[in-house]
Each structure stands twice: as C-alpha cells, then as structure tokens.
Design a protein around this nucleic acid. Structure first.
Lengths: 239, 239
DNA sequence: TGTCAATTGTCAGTCGCTGTCACTAGCCTG
DNA sequence: CAGGCTAGTGACAGCGACTGACAATTGACA
C-alpha cells in the first residue's frame, strides 16, 4: 500500500484548525497570513501531530511514512515536502525548545559567570517552554516524544548530533561573553560540555522516573547543577 | 546492477591474506582457527578494507553496498551477514580503539585521581593503538576514516551515540574506583563529560589540521588536558 | 565417504526517499 | 474581473538499504 486513496474526510486536518492563540483578532493583530499560508500551516501541524502520535504509540521504526500520510490524507510526497525526512518530524518541537534556550542565554546579564548564566538560562527556559509547546502539540505528547527519542537508537544518535551543534553555538555565546576565542581557549567548550553532560544525565533520569511534570525536571536540573558548581565554577575573569 | 556476476578473480580476498602477525608459527601458538574460520576472517577483512577505501575516496553516502561487494566478489546478502548495516563497517576500527582505551583505563593504579587516570589512559592508549590498527587496516586509512566520520552528518551522529555509550562505561569505571554510585553522584559523569569534551575538541582540531600523525593528536590531547586540570582536578576523596 | 551444520547466493519484497510531470487553487496584475 | 503566474500537490517510477526464505555449497567430523 504505497499511497492512500481518498475515501474519508481528512479528519486530522480538521481538528488541527482550532489551535494556535492568535489573540482572537479576526482581522488586525499580526495580520492574517493569507489563506495559502494558513492552509500550509494546518497541513504541517497535522502531519506533525499525527507522526508524534504514531511514533509514541507504536514506535519510530515501526511507523511508516505512509501510515502518517494516510491519517492526514495527503500523499507521501507531500510529507517529504514539509519534512526533509522521517527523523525531522521527531525533532520539530525540540528544535523550538533549543532555540528558546539559546535566546534565553543571550539575554542573561553580562556580569554573570559562565555557569551562572547557563544555569539561569536553562531554569528560566523550562518555565516558558510549557506555554510555547502547547501551541503546537499537547505537552504530554512532547514529553513522551522525548522519552521515545532517548530510547530509539537512531533517534538518540540524531539527538546527540543536534545537541552537539547547539553546544557549539552555546560555547560561542559563552566565549563571546568572556571575550575568549572558542578555537584557542578550551574552557568555553569544556564548560559547556560539562554543563550539557549534566543536562543529559538529568534528562535521562527524568525520562526514566515517574513524574513527567515540568517542575520535576526543573528541580532535578537545579539540584544537579548545584553539584557541578564546586567542580567547575569560578569567575574566569579574575584568575 | 543489483548483484555482481563473477568474472574476474576476487582480488581483494587474495591481497587480504598476507596480513596479521600471528608470530609466524605454522602450527602451535594460539592454535590455527581452522580453514573455515580463516576464510571468514579474510572475507570480513576484505569487506572492511574495500568499504573504508571507497568511503574515504568517494564518500559514505555516495558508496553503494553493491559497489563494496562487487570488489570483494561476494553477494550483497553476505555483506549484511558480516555487518548489521553500512554504518557498522565505518566503525569497525573505532570499536577496537575504544575497547583498548577502556581496558587501558581499568589498568591504571587505583591511587590516581580520576582525571589523572583518564589522562594516563588516553595518552598511553595512543601509543599502542598504532600497532593494533595496522593489523587490520593501514593506519593512514584509519586516519582518513576518522576524518570522514567527523564530516558525514549521519556518521557523526552514530559516532556520538557510540561515544555516549563508551562514556557511560568510563563513568562507571571511574565511579567504581572512587567508590561512588553513578546514578546518585553526578561527579563521575560530569568529569567524564568534560574529559570527553576535550577529546572531541582535540579530535576535531586534529582532523582539521595538516599533521595527521599519531604524535600530533597525542600532544594536542596532552596540552588541552593540562588546561582542563585547574578547572576540574582535585582529589574527591579528600573534601 | 557420507552426514551435519555453517556460509553463501538468489529471489522477492518492504520502506525511506527523490525526480518528474501534470494539474489545481490561491494570488496578483492589467 | 479575466487571465496568467506559481506554489502546493498527487501520481508514478525508480534507487538504495535492508530482510526473510529457501536452495546450493562447502568445511568439519565421524
């Protein structure tokens, strides 16, 4: 069964509509993006949600692209026009979250020591995230997606590569704050590596535990970062 | 062209023979593994070398499994009986190297502080590696394979996942040395994360530079680890 | 030499992903 | 508001990685 054959209504496309929080304005606000644009957005959201739903219930490898497109009632080709590959769908939300964290870090006061800023950024970010996620998919779904990624070898690999790229960006931000050069001074990358190491550990512990609340991961992170302090902290600008 | 059609001699299989350094004994020693076993080993080695050769010259994605099997003159199915997937071939040597490092770490004197042991293990391992690698493929080939992995997204991802698993093992070894529990005390994992971060940075710098000698990477590693010291060192057993 | 079991080849089929082409529906210009 | 432009789509064909099933070979061993 390579392609669906249009028999029922595109249920997912419908249910996708009553989302987003464009402040209820029917005309002004951020300007209606035009019918074409909205339709596209709806299709993308529908594909995303259908995919995550399937991934988390029957597994990533076990889910076929055809199965996804069948639910949303579009052709397989259309799926690949929205997402470069099956993997990309799984990280759509993560992508957003990471961008938010980096932004959060950039906004930290310049006086803060590297690890203080990182700590502040991640803890602050956890707060806002819940909201923005909900705009696209239920938080609960994002939670299970995260756990699913951690337990799917190929996705875990992709996740790590993405993390590495993010780490690189973070290291550059840190280096900039401290007036250092990332490529000659190892400290920014080392600090970020250690920091990210803690993130990964807490992330895994959280995924393995019962409490899937945002508070849970926030507190765990905070606690672990406290342990990291004595080992890595210290203001580099006053040797 | 799905399968080759047996016309020329299996050149690679032949040239694969005069390798290994089984101390020249024709009968005693570790006991001859029998014809069947040796034949299998030769096929595996031939596949491995042909694959790496192709990967490093024309790229991983651009290399077809059929192309590999065509050179070695075996069926595609046979390839997949030796290697679970195309990826696995690319990491065959790395696998060996990592195992050697972990072993090297396990043999460090118990008195050494965590980072001292890690440092000693990696520097010592770099020495021996050259030899054992040569038993399977030319060192030069392994070097270019490493660089190739770093510059191929999908392989880099896989590489990181494998690294993570190795890190986990290392963290457990460290924790054991210090009498700690990896899951409750974050320090082992954090230290290993920082250490691995340095490894990754030096590895990338080395791959980007000119000098592809083993000494080069050894010295680079040493130098960077020295910088890490003041930030993470300290004997945990005397708080 | 004959039997057993490991290796391998062959064949058919699934699935991720891409190129191509024709078609339709928003959108824009005259 | 007609007519053209183009983004978005569906339908197909096809490639390459990978797997299951079965038959043919071949080393190991009695």
């Amino acid at each position: 069964m390579k392609t669906g054959q249009r028999t029922t209504e595109p249920a997912e496309l419908q249910s996708a509509e009553p989302r987003a929080k464009p402040t209820e304005d029917p005309s002004p606000g951020p300007a209606a993006p035009g019918l074409r644009e909205r339709k596209k957005q709806r299709t993308r959201d529908a594909l995303l949600r259908a995919a995550l739903e399937l991934f988390t219930t029957k597994g990533f490898e076990e889910t076929t692209v055809d199965e996804i497109t069948e639910i949303v009632e579009v052709s397989q080709r259309t799926f690949f026009r929205y997402f470069a590959n099956k993997e990309e769908v799984a990280f759509a939300v993560q992508e957003m979250v990471e961008a938010r964290f980096v932004q959060s870090l950039r906004e930290r006061p310049a006086e803060e020591a590297p690890l203080v800023a990182l700590r502040g950024a991640i803890l602050g970010a956890w707060e806002a995230m819940g909201q923005s996620i909900e705009e696209v998919v239920p938080v609960e779904l994002h939670m299970s997606t995260y756990q699913m990624i951690e337990s799917t070898p190929s996705l875990l690999a992709a996740h790590l590569r993405r993390s590495m790229e993010t780490e690189d960006e973070i290291a550059r931000v840190i280096a900039e704050r401290e007036g250092l050069d990332v490529d000659s001074d190892p400290r920014p990358r080392v600090a970020v590596a250690a920091f990210s190491g803690v993130m990964r550990v807490t992330g895994r512990l959280w995924g393995a535990g019962e409490d899937t609340s945002v508070e849970s991961i926030r507190e765990l992170t905070e606690q672990y970062l406290d342990h990291l302090g004595p080992a890595l902290a210290g203001n580099w600008r006053t040797p």
